[in-house]
Design a protein around this nucleic acid. Structure first.
Lengths: 238, 238
DNA sequence: CTTGGAAAGATTGTATACAATATAGCAGAG
DNA sequence: CTCTGCTATATTGTATACAATCTTTCCAAG
């Protein structure tokens, strides 16, 4: 029997899905907005067929909600939703850190070290646009966390984390605004890194959990401030 | 704006997905077999369009693998895959049990009690067909575990557990064959139940983890026996 | 002025047709 | 006899057409 491809999935209207996902995460199609298939098809330059598949997939991932005969809506997150997700994230990433402590390779450690250093340096750098800065920070942060998941050596854990972390950036970007929070975040990164170097899984888990709960609290704080602002007369759905 | 439906998803070719899922879990279309769209369409009495969507969804859930331009295959699980899944299941269900200890309602406890009792009684009952027995046991067991997930009060946790537990029954059914293992399993159920009644989250988690690891070990043992049998000249893919 | 209901419009759900791609089988050269 | 390349077949991927369903609008009755 001829060998089937080893790769999971790639190329073609899988790209439609990737683009849709990106659009959702980056905040075009804001939470709560309707996702009319024809419109998406035109935006992405394809027919409705691949769009539909992408929507089904995004729904399975929790990024959109599909109401039968009524269409898809970019998922909106209540505060309770965010609490649930962060709770699971702490559980899963904490576990990932625990596992990683016993298996991480020097190469992976180096990658994490580089990401942590980049985040620290960025405090003293200036960027052309605020957007660029946020993008850079989000990316380096993703490298740090994804490397841990990778080092844990559990493919399904990686998949689950990708699902959980796929919350629209909109909700997370403010996180990177203030210097104080970034410094604390950097401190957590260093603590986690140290624990991993020492092979101390318990400590790595504990620090990772605290790191994530800290992020959650910052998010909720700003979320509350935002909803207060909205309550005073600001609208975001056309 | 008129209120959108609260229900998540139901009715229509969502049913195609449910049926496909069932077929996969129950072992028609055994692991590794090709899932040709047209054939599935005929089997289910619809066109390829809804079948394709169901396949995409099943792929997102990990039940099938889709190879671009080459079609879908009922996912086959290596021993490592099973280890990964049980590791996560212990983590997630353990956490669910921990959370449930603080929030479970008398009604939910009663449901679990009934399921546990049904599993105990079944040891002394006779069924018309072995199949019926396995079906009954799997169902009661599902009630027990799903109620805990429900009591944990985290919707996303429920979703994730559904994904993890969706391993083809084929792999799990043997689990119910021997009386000794069933007795031990029942004992774990009672231990978990007690911990929940007492509101002791730590113990509930610990017992749940052991329960799941025990199931894993039984599974792996029989899996190894089975693969030894296959090695001696038995084929299952036409 | 509000409410009920029917018709028009918009959008989703499914089937089918066709294009793109991979697989298998066969022929011919080495 | 084996290996390479070409053609035929099977299957997937996408677009489009039409049916089913929901939403909105408008008008009449209360």
């Amino acid at each position: 029997m001829s060998r089937l491809y080893t790769s999971d999935e790639s190329s073609s209207a899988d790209q439609v899905y990737q683009r849709l996902r990106r659009l959702l995460i980056e905040g075009h199609y804001p939470p709560g907005s309707r996702l009319v298939e024809e419109r998406l098809a035109q935006d992405l330059g394809v027919s409705r067929t691949p769009v539909r598949q992408a929507l089904v997939r995004a729904a399975a991932e929790g990024l959109v909600q599909i109401f039968p005969n009524r269409g898809a809506v970019a998922r909106s997150f209540t505060i309770d939703d965010l609490l649930e997700m962060y709770d699971l994230r702490a559980l899963l990433e904490g576990h990932a850190a625990y596992l990683a402590a016993q298996r991480i390779t020097p190469d992976q450690l180096a990658r994490m070290e580089a990401a942590a250093a980049a985040l620290e340096d960025s405090l003293h750098r200036t960027f052309a646009r605020r957007e660029d800065e946020v993008h850079f920070l989000v990316e380096q942060n993703a490298v740090f966390h994804q490397t841990i998941a990778e080092a844990a050596g559990n493919q399904r854990l990686i998949t689950m984390l990708n699902q959980i972390v796929a919350v629209p950036l909109q909700f997370r970007s403010f996180y990177w605004y203030r210097a104080e929070e970034r410094q604390i975040s950097n401190f957590f990164h260093r603590s986690i890194l140290n624990a991993l170097i020492l092979g101390d899984g318990d400590r790595a888990r504990a620090m990772m959990r605290e790191h994530i709960f800290y992020g959650r609290d910052v998010l909720l704080q700003s979320r509350r401030a935002e909803s207060a602002a909205v309550a005073s007369g600001e609208e975001n759905v056309p």
